[in-house]
Nucleic acid binder design. Structure first.
Lengths: 128, 128
DNA sequence: GCAATTAGTAGACGAGGTCTAATAATGGAA
DNA sequence: TTCCATTATTAGACCTCGTCTACTAATTGC
């Protein structure tokens, strides 16, 4: 019994890219490709490198929304890079995310508990 | 500074409707409207009643995928109801969800920690 | 008699994630 | 020296899934 495409495989923890980006950029100014690599190292990405096109678009969107500030870095050597940093508005958004993430964690905890109980108290089922 | 439509408000913990449905139906057979009400009481729905159209569609999809079994209940009194129960395949899926949810929880924990550190260790920021 | 609730369906829409593909520079290996 | 991988970014199509609006139809309560 396979669930190759089933959401239960947890392919990615979607919709958390934005708080992750804000967190990364709250400490330092980075360009998109570096954000991409740092994201890949976070558990929310499950060891997989997130889709580059999606991350770059999210960065542009967040810049448009005023959460990030972007500036072109045009070195004489090498390709142009766009460096992003967090705006005050972005910081406020991250503070709000903090509360939201805590609520998410609690909600998932409740669901985990209920699921465990539903599967049987003493059952250690293994999924294929 | 408002974030009425920003994902940071955590309007809903999306993509967890399926494990929640499996959990609810693992214990008993319910019809769609009852599933809807029980979902509304779970933290993943944040106190809001989830969209009915979406839940009914999810139930149909999961039936089509063999995770749920549906049967029409046609009482002499009252409207027709469709009663859903979990199949063995659905139970296996739920067992897998169990592991996925635990990973989600840990991943969010890591993100929360990083976000807290990024906002400043001793800072108790309040978002409007 | 009318509104609210129960029970379910259909269609359009939108956010956001994935996939493919393209450009362009650099550095290393065959 | 040619070719491939990596760095760095963009564009467009597509898919999933959640939301919104709107509809049918029976029941219950004021």
């Amino acid at each position: 019994m396979e669930f190759l495409d089933c959401p239960c495989t947890g392919k990615s923890l979607t919709r958390l890219v934005r708080p992750a980006v804000l967190t990364l950029l709250a400490g330092e100014t980075l360009h998109g490709y570096e954000v991409l690599r740092r994201l890949a190292a976070m558990r929310i990405c499950g060891g997989r490198r997130p889709d580059a096109a999606g991350v770059y678009r999210t960065l542009r969107d967040m810049e448009f929304e005023g959460l990030l500030a972007g500036a072109w870095d045009l070195p004489e050597q090498g390709p142009a890079k766009r460096r992003f940093s967090v705006t005050p508005r972005g910081l406020a958004c991250l503070a709000r995310w903090n509360a939201t993430l805590a609520e998410y964690q609690a909600a998932i905890g409740q669901l985990l508990e209920a699921a465990g109980a539903a599967l049987g108290p003493a059952t250690d089922r293994e999924a294929s």
